[in-house]
Design a protein around this nucleic acid. Structure first.
Length: 250
DNA sequence: ACCTATGTTGATAC
DNA sequence: GGTATCAACATAGG
């Protein structure tokens, strides 16, 4: 789930429902999710403050806090989501929780525990947001290296926000073979790729998630390309399961 | 029961 | 430095 669209949805939810509410308590006991902080460290830094703004770049989320408080960084990991003013989840799935003075809450709800909460997150290593990047920057950042173009697209230091599902969707829309070396793409192909990325990201944000793409249903044994009907190819690229149309994606 | 799969990232080795 | 592999976690399904 969590790729750029889910992160944007979470950001908007925080902005709409969790700002300017005084924090009365923080549950940061999950030392894995709140690493490298010790239990209580985030709580000590946040109790008595409010979240004042919610930001996102790629899949990274962060909030500013009142009275020159620290930045609170949140990452949804592989299965996390942000819930606000809901009943507590079963099985301790609320891995990090802000309890507000008004009785409400904000939680990072995450079965897998691969999400993350931390103070003063390092955002410098993150590339420009995949939905915003300009044509020239896209060409120079993405169009280099010998790694497969799919791996390059998913490298968060190159551009931020594209995960496994969206990478397949974008490459399918652009009709590019995911195995090709990034550095060997022509400028025309890179422009095509960028247009496909912007369109896919915009559409996914509007439709509410990375799972809403046109080629996502074709991720399964024996599935056919939704455009031409040829059986989709399956392989492992950049360490991730990959589906592509062997007839159209060149 | 056991094996595989899964949207993430980060550490490690070549 | 760039690239590839594995591990972290917990759950679902064959």
């Amino acid at each position: 789930m969590p790729e750029l669209p889910e992160a944007e949805r979470a950001r908007a939810a925080i902005e709409a429902g969790a700002l300017h509410r005084r924090i009365a308590a923080v549950d940061d006991r999950d030392v894995y999710v709140s690493r490298p902080h010790a239990p209580g460290e985030i709580a000590d830094a946040l109790v008595g403050r409010e979240l004042t703004s919610a930001h996102r770049r790629g899949k990274a989320l962060w909030c500013e806090t009142s009275e020159d408080g620290p930045i609170l960084g949140l990452h949804l990991g592989m299965a996390g989501r942000i819930v606000i003013d809901e009943e507590p989840a079963p099985r301790n799935w609320d891995r990090f929780v802000l309890h507000f003075e008004d009785g409400g809450m904000l939680a990072l709800r995450d079965k897998r525990r691969l999400g993350r909460a931390r103070l003063e997150p390092d955002l410098d290593a993150l590339g420009p947001d995949a939905a915003d990047i300009g044509r020239a920057a896209f060409r120079t950042r993405v169009g280099r290296g010998s790694a497969p173009i799919k791996a390059r697209l998913m490298d968060q230091a190159v551009i931020a926000g594209v995960g496994n599902l969206l990478a397949d969707e974008i490459l399918w829309q652009a009709r590019l073979d995911p195995r090709r070396s990034a550095g060997e793409l022509t400028d025309d192909e890179l422009d095509r790729l960028r247009r496909a990325a912007r369109a896919a990201l915009r559409s996914a944000v509007r439709r509410g998630g990375a799972h809403t793409g046109d080629v996502i249903p074709a991720r399964g044994p024996g599935a056919a390309c939704p455009r031409c009907g040829v059986e989709m190819a399956k392989g492992r690229i950049g360490g991730r399961t990959t589906f592509w149309c062997p007839a159209e994606q060149r």
